[in-house]
Design a protein around this nucleic acid. Structure first.
Lengths: 231, 231
DNA sequence: CGAAGCCTTGAATCAAGTCAATAGCTGTGG
DNA sequence: CCACAGCTATTGACTTGATTCAAGGCTTCG
């Protein structure tokens, strides 16, 4: 399968890899197009491949025994995902669903050790990535333990701005379709509460909503909300 | 520093390491005694060492900007902790405090790569450990998102039973001093709510409380509480 | 155009948090 | 050995943030 080397090269992960190594890796990769709302892999399925998102946007969700869903994280272009095997898991802990038309590279998990050998930097990067995720998870736990919903939602939106913001005049557009329900699942609340909060924000000129749309007009204002201690 | 090889050898991490390797590692280790309520390291301090808990019990806490505290995890004998450097961090993300008289081995972080070289299994184990922690964190996020307080507390207590339970007749004793406040910080609630819940449980014969004491008399009953969907 | 999927907004309810007061251990020192 | 200081825990009353229930409106797309 022919894959564009120069595209891959733009991602930090590959940036310092030399041509030979890059080609060796890409030789074993296949690329996969994922239409909106289709899953790349499902929670509990055997972890046969690991992936690199080239283009688009995914959400990783988990479902509890009693059927509730939460969004574990959002996958952005350049992110590795689904490398459960690297953590000695046999199955995927969550489901990865495209929220926008996406393209991912994938490798059979058996190749992970080779992948790492070929570029020791990669082992380090992977470790780092997981470390970051762990920290994010702890940050989220901290937020959920101590902050009321509005601040949590503010934090979540700011995170999206940082990871998926695209300038649009004075404001920042969240660059993929996201619903109130999604935000609720990211912050551990209900779409109703999110809707109310965002209506209030819209009235104050902080954001502009819409069907699966989100435009942040005043990031500083949100930041003030997110950081200010209660009262 | 003379350290008992046979003690170390009882931990899964070292179980399959041969004598030469074990000795090489222990040669660079020092041991450190930590009295109750003293910290092994503090949140934000430079990560100079990584540790292995030999004996005792620690809690790892984080403090938010506005002064609230949460318990990130409990460290049990045999656990590695404080290996921030392995995740490419310069500082410790939390504070590790002894809740019981403890003894830990420690190594300078510079030795981590060597530590890993010496025993590649260790790299794998470390990865696995971190993977587990990530999963635990996600499980906790899931719980906090979807379950009401009583179930969360039930889960937390059951986790303690599994990790620090000591049989005591028909019941199981949590083997270190733990306060209502601690449980509150592990579950994201207040000591008042925890106290109320545990009083109710005590009335139903599920547990027996006391000042920093906790005896689980009916783990099945708790499990039913923890697992049953609401109502 | 109609159906499906999102979003908004009221009203009622409820789980937990806050406030406040008291009681019970535990270890210390007079 | 008793009293006191300092924690830790218990409990009631009240408040409130957020969920649930319910109804209706707005987009988008086939």
């Amino acid at each position: 399968m022919k894959i564009d080397k120069s595209l891959v090269r733009t991602f930090p992960l590959f940036e310092r890899m030399d041509d030979a190594d890059t080609e060796a890796l890409l030789a074993h990769a296949s690329s996969r197009r994922v239409p909106v709302s289709e899953a790349v892999f499902e929670q509990g399925a055997a972890a046969t491949h690991f992936y690199l998102l080239l283009h688009g946007r995914l959400k990783v969700t988990q479902v509890t025994e009693d059927g509730q869903q939460i969004i574990v994280r959002v996958v952005h272009p350049g992110d590795l995902f689904g490398f459960a095997k690297a953590l000695q898991r046999k199955d995927y802990p969550g489901t990865a669903t495209a929220v926008a038309e996406s393209i991912a590279l994938c490798w059979p998990t058996e190749l992970w050790p080779q992948f790492v050998d070929r570029n020791p930097r990669l082992a380090v990067t992977a470790m780092q990535t997981i470390g970051q995720r762990l920290e994010e998870a702890h940050a989220r736990i901290r937020e959920m333990s101590t902050q009321e919903v509005e601040r949590r939602v503010a934090h979540a939106v700011l995170r999206l701005v940082k990871q998926a913001g695209r300038k649009e005049g004075d404001a920042v557009r969240i660059d993929f379709p996201i619903s109130r329900q999604d935000i609720a699942e990211m912050t551990g609340t209900t779409l109703h509460t999110v809707s109310r909060i965002m209506s209030a924000w819209e009235a104050r000129g902080l954001v502009e909503g819409g069907r699966q749309k989100l435009l942040v007009k005043d990031a500083e204002g949100l930041l003030a909300l997110a950081d200010s201690a209660k009262e």
